[in-house]
Design a protein around this nucleic acid. Structure first.
Lengths: 178, 178
DNA sequence: GTCTATAATACGATAGAC
DNA sequence: GTCTATCGTATTATAGAC
C-alpha cells in the first residue's frame, strides 16, 4: 500500500525530500496510478498522518489495557523511546521532525500533523489525572512530551543511542518521584 | 550581504525551502553574481553556519564577561529562550531545526551544523565544571541542551509563547536547585 | 565587475493509449 | 484498471554579452 510506503519515506527523507519517484519505487505502483487514490502529494501526507494516528492510538489503547497503575503507563511511554532507539537516533522522532519541517512554510499542513501531539498530550494528561494531579495534568503532559522531544533531538544530532538511554533513565526517575 | 540574508531565509523557510530566487530577492544581488562568492548552495549554508557560530560565540563570550557566578550564566542561557520567544514560537530553534532538516538526507551537511550544538554543549559544560561538577559536566550540559530543545519544539508546535514561558521557569528552578 | 538569458535537470501532476 | 509518455513549472547552476 502506498500510504505505508509514504509513511516510511517521509520519516526517513522528510516530506519535501521525498519525491513522487521515491514513493513510486517504494510502493511498486505505477506513476500515474497514485493519482487514482490521491489527488495531490499533500493528500498522501494527510493519509500518512491518519495512519500514524491510528497506529499510535492502538498502541496507547494497548497500554491502557495492559497497565492499571498510571505511573506504569508513563514508564511505558518512556520505554517506547528506548525501544525505538535505533530509528530515533538515525531519523529523529517521526512526529516531532514532521511538525518541525511543516512549521517552515507549510503551516497549513502542520495543523493536521499537530493532532499527533494532541493524541499523546491528551493520553499523558489522562495518566496524570489518574494520579490525582487534576489541575496540573495538562502542563505535566506537555512537560513530559517536551522532555521526550528534547532527548530525541539530542540523540539524533549526536547519533548516539547512549545519550538516549541515559536521558530516558533520568526521565523515568522523575516519573517515579512524582 | 548575502550570508546574512541566507541566515534569515534558511531559518524562516528551511534550507531546502529557500530557493536561490528567495536569496536573490532578499539580498538585492543579481542572480549570477552570487556564484562569484559561493560555488554552490551548500557553500552558502556553510557560510551561514559560520555566521551563527560567530554570533553565538560572541554572545557566550559576553556572558562570560558579564557574570562570574556560573549559575547566573546558566540562567542567562535559559533567559535567551524567553528573550527570543517570538521567533522561537514562530520558527523553532534555528540550530535545532537546521540539524533536524539536515539529518534527513543531508547527513554530510549535518556534520558542520552539529558544531553549533558543540559550541553550546562545551560552554555549558564549562559552567557546570565551575560549579564543581567535573565528572557530570558534559552530561548535565547535554541534559540542559535537550531540555531547551524540547521546550522549543513544544512551544513551536503549539505556537504558544506561554508554554515556553512556563517551561523555562521550571528549568531555571532546576538550575537554582543544583 | 554588472547584469541577463538560459541551460540542465528534477519536480508534481496529467493525458490518454491500451 | 494498467501502464507510459509527457506536460508545465521551479529548481540549481552557467554562459556570456556588456
Amino acid at each position: 500500500m502506498s500510504v505505508k510506503s509514504g509513511q516510511l519515506q517521509f520519516y526517513e527523507h522528510g516530506y519535501d525530500g521525498t519525491s513522487f519517484s521515491h514513493i513510486v519505487e517504494a510502493s511498486g505502483l505505477y506513476r500515474g496510478n497514485i493519482y487514482h487514490y490521491f489527488k495531490t502529494k499533500d493528500d498522501i501526507l494527510k493519509a500518512v498522518i491518519d495512519l500514524h494516528l491510528k497506529e499510535f492510538g492502538e498502541l496507547l489503547a494497548r497500554w491502557d489495557q495492559e497497565f492499571t497503575d498510571p505511573k506504569e503507563k508513563l514508564i511505558a511511554f518512556v520505554d517506547m523511546l528506548t525501544g525505538r532507539k535505533a530509528e530515533l537516533v538515525q531519523y529523529g522522532c517521526p512526529i516531532g521532525s514532521m511538525n518541525m519541517e511543516l512549521g517552515k512554510g507549510r503551516r497549513d499542513l502542520q495543523k493536521p500533523a499537530r493532532a499527533l501531539f494532541d493524541l499523546f498530550r491528551d493520553w499523558l494528561a489522562g495518566c496524570f489525572k489518574e494520579m490525582g494531579k487534576d489541575d496540573k495534568a495538562k502542563s505535566l503532559a506537555l512537560h513530559l512530551l517536551g522532555r521526550a522531544q528534547g532527548i530525541t533531538v539530542i540523540a539524533h544530532v549526536y547519533q548516539d543511542p547512549k545519550l538516549l538511554r541515559r536521558e530516558t533513565t533520568n526521565l523515568q526517575t522523575w516519573i517515579r518521584n512524582l
